[in-house]
């Protein structure tokens, strides 16, 4: 199911719930007391109240707000693994929130004193079960999403015996560089004109950030090495023996890793300076390393060629 359709699936229950709530409310408006019971104790008796108009606006705002939140979350998470769960939870929540809202209106209808309103506790069980059921239904409806089609085996550069090879490329993040420059400048200005203690942190942080705005990715007989263009350490090094295969992929740092920089996810690590083309390397331990770099097809093919040769030589 595409992201747009998932977004629709997340939005529709809230639209329906809002329409139903407003519809039921307006249809019964004449029969509702001026103050209506909106909160109930564990015994089922009313213990908090709201004005009639206030309740209408509160209910609609709550449903529309939640609807927007879940729709945006679904659209942002796109095809990633969390998208299906996001949508299912959103749909379930629409029922769990919409049901008691509408029920409150119905319970308050034709009541003289809102203090007399009584909410039977079994409704709580109903709304929880109904929420879970619709959430599960949405989960089932969406299906597992577009299975990442079994990618054709990544090309492998055939290497001659004894041939020495190396691939190296740098990637510069202009955004990070400008940000680091701005932070350093703020630090320097604060140091001179403001309290010097406050200026110290940005003055140190800026250059450190700048050092990681550029990374060099190297593929050679030692495997994969990712390092800052100016500092020798820290570095990310994957020896050839630990690598199973490599591929060129398209990466969406926000959707897949929750941001830029060095990102850690279960069984995934990322060095992400931008979105788009990236080198993906799988290790024998089942971990995937994703590094954003141009010309990643060449890097992946060379890494596969080196891995193949390494396997031939060691078996």
């Amino acid at each position: 199911m595409t992201a747009i359709r998932r977004g629709t699936l997340a939005a529709v229950p809230y639209a329906v719930a809002t329409a139903a709530y407003a519809g039921v409310f307006l249809a019964n408006e004449d029969r509702l007391p001026g103050r209506i019971a909106t909160h109930f104790s564990t015994g089922g008796g009313a213990d908090d109240y709201m004005s009639r108009d206030g309740a209408l606006w509160f209910g609609c705002a709550l449903l529309v707000g939640l609807g927007l939140l879940f729709t945006v979350l679904t659209l942002v998470s796109k095809e990633s693994a969390g998208s299906r769960l996001n949508t299912a939870v959103g749909v379930g929540t629409a029922v769990t929130v919409g049901y008691p809202l509408i029920l409150t209106v119905l319970l308050n209808t034709d009541v003289q004193d809102p203090a007399d309103v009584h909410l039977p506790l079994w409704h709580v069980a109903v709304l929880l079960v109904a929420g879970l059921a619709t959430g599960a239904l949405a989960w089932w409806l969406m299906g597992p999403g577009p299975r990442p089609e079994p990618a054709p085996p990544a090309p492998s550069l055939p290497l001659a015996e004894g041939e020495a090879v190396a691939w190296s490329r740098t990637m510069m993040s202009r955004v990070l560089l400008i940000t680091a420059g701005a932070v350093t400048l703020v630090g320097a200005v604060t140091l001179v004109f403001g309290p010097w203690q406050a200026g110290l942190a940005p003055l140190v942080l800026g250059p450190v950030c700048a050092a990681f705005a550029g990374v060099r990715v190297t593929v050679d007989r030692r495997g994969l090495t990712v390092t800052s263009t100016v500092l020798p350490r820290p570095r990310l090094a994957l020896p050839l023996g630990s690598i199973v295969g490599a591929d060129s992929v398209e990466v969406d740092p926000v959707g897949e890793f929750g941001g830029w920089g060095y990102r850690i996810r279960p069984n995934r690590r990322g060095v992400l300076l931008r979105s788009g083309e990236a080198l993906s390397v799988r290790t024998a331990k089942g971990r995937e390393y994703v590094v954003t770099i141009d010309d990643s097809t060449t890097a992946a093919a060379l890494l596969n060629g080196l891995t193949d040769r390494h396997a031939r030589e060691h078996h």
Binding site: G162, A164, V165, A166, S168, R169
Partner: peptide, 9 residues
């Protein structure tokens, strides 16, 4: 940049 050299050449 891809470098490929044959030391025996």
């Amino acid at each position: 940049m891809l470098f490929r050299v044959l030391p025996g050449s």
